[in-house]
Design a protein around this nucleic acid. Structure first.
Lengths: 315, 315
DNA sequence: TTGAAAGCGCTAACAA
DNA sequence: TTGTTAGCGCTTTCAA
């Protein structure tokens, strides 16, 4: 397990030539190349990638910030990123933050320390300004609408997606529409609120449920919904998992879907098909792939990915 | 954005002293420490972690090999690993392999290249021997039963888990038991086969369904099950997602659970509770945490995590 | 086509 | 308590 100099000595060449061979440079004579390869073989040479990173000033590694790796929503985006990274020969350093700002900062610091060449933020808790402070250290891509910003972004138009879902329900004669969001304050929550107000005016606040991310959240919210005296006649739900929890709990409580309440989820996760749940399909994997392309690109861009309403039996 | 030498010059000390300050070594006078900190501040100093990695010969980074990042089964384990890594100040380099051996090898090479100090293999396709070849380059932990091996392991006793699930069904009067697995040939599939044979003799091969990982797989398998003339009266399913797909498709086809077929899933994912699906709870997050502890430990160990049958309404 | 030499930026053993 | 010095191992420019 020697280094480049051991090989140079054994092969009777200089370290520079060894480096050239190892990196497939042209302009190395057949003989020397051969000698180097043999010496490398003989010494079981493996290059130390940290030395390469230091010398080259980059790591071919991208950091990824996301709150939870075990949730398919984030997992799908991550999967798209991973696929693109693989193709380009990049590695991925991931930071599961639990939406903890301290951990987000620690992840951002990887950029300063040159541990990663760029950073993709799938979802965050910390203020945007904080992230912008790091933009000098490497390229950063956020998976959220960021039109004016100096950071790249790739996103679903949450406003339009929600808007068109509302219109769809309206056409179906629904007028008492409730919905759920992950976080009370948040980009996509605000977009939803705005879209709602535009069509129906301000939503009664007990028709808006937050902290909705998992199946269990759906179960809990269904309980709250059922307890309401002025129950919404339809619900637009954060994602298909929450919607699954909601739907199943409603059934358990004796309600019928869509008889007592119409349901629309988001993501078009396979579970929604199995439950015959209408949903808004989001190309999450593709979104991840685009994010990765952006992080390698030298110019700032803002890309929107399409959504599509999938009608099934829950409306 | 200078380096350690710029600071040394500005603060009027040696680079070694700067290094000592930056790493919180004792034995640095108050004055020099102060001077160094001020100079660092002034120059907006950030250390280059690659130089540290090179000099120290380690990276405080652990590699993780897993086939799919978007499936909750792997995601939960990864989440446990991530949590433990966070606590210890380690970073995680993940490789989504799609069970592709080429990519697995590439991940293993990170160990040779000293890009990671250790490696956790959540699930793999390549032969164990191949992995053992890398054991000299750093600690490796596999998430599968590996009793005799020189590599550490953490696992659920698949044989016992399956065994006791079979016994449970037997007690309930079930005699025609089918099951699903992810891969025809694989550690856990073999364990299941063995457990089955021990209690019921060889299973009719059309009662055993492979390629079962996702909700869609469950849907597909339910279709196959329904088409059988000698349908099993109960099914033990790879995981709760597949079970969810199976259950919902059965219902759609007009069968009742557990009237026409009893179902038991694995993992105790929240979706199983919502579906009132009986399942074998596996502490996946904890398994990940243990794997991480093992990868940092200097001694080889083999740890079993417990499983627990959760009775709900599907049997 | 090749080699010498100067980095890349930090650590740590040793001597003072 | 501090500085000197010799690495860590690879890349890359420059001159030959």
């Amino acid at each position: 397990m020697g280094n480049i100099h051991d090989i140079a000595r054994l092969a009777g060449v200089s370290a520079a030539t060894v480096s050239r061979v190892m990196n497939d440079y042209p302009y190395v004579s057949k003989e020397k190349r051969q000698a180097v390869l043999e010496a490398a073989e003989q010494l079981h040479y493996e290059k130390n990638i940290n030395a390469v990173h230091l010398a080259r000033g980059k790591t071919e590694t991208i950091g990824v910030i996301l709150p939870f790796v075990s949730h398919p929503y984030f997992g799908m985006i991550l999967s798209g990123i991973a696929e693109a990274a693989e193709k380009r020969g990049y590695k991925l350093l991931i930071m599961q933050t639990n939406y903890n700002v301290i951990q987000e900062i620690e992840a951002l610091n990887m950029l300063k320390l040159k541990q990663v060449d760029g950073l993709i933020v799938i979802s965050r808790e910390c203020p945007l300004e904080l992230i912008e402070d790091y933009s000098g250290c490497g390229r950063i891509v956020l998976c959220e609408a960021l039109a004016g910003s100096s950071l790249s972004s790739v996103f679903v138009n949450q406003y339009e997606a929600f808007q068109s879902t509302l219109s769809f329900l309206k056409e179906k004669g629904k007028t008492r529409i409730g919905y759920s969001v992950l976080r009370k304050e948040g980009k996509s929550s605000n977009a939803r609120k705005k879209a709602y107000e535009q069509q129906f005016g301000k939503a009664p606040c007990h028709w808006v449920f937050d902290q909705a991310l998992t199946v269990e959240d759906g179960t809990r919210i269904a309980g709250k919904w059922a307890a309401l005296s002025d129950r919404p006649d339809s619900m637009i739900i954060t994602n298909d998992f929450v919607a699954a929890g909601f739907l199943l709990e409603c059934r358990r409580l004796g309600f019928s879907i869509p008889g007592d309440v119409s349901l629309i989820g988001f993501d078009n996760h396979p579970i929604s098909a199995a439950l015959s749940l209408s949903t808004v399909e989001l190309p999450l994997q593709q979104l991840g792939t685009i994010a990765f392309e952006q992080v390698l690109s030298s110019k700032v861009s803002h890309k929107e990915v399409p959504f599509q309403l999938i009608e099934r039996g829950s409306v």
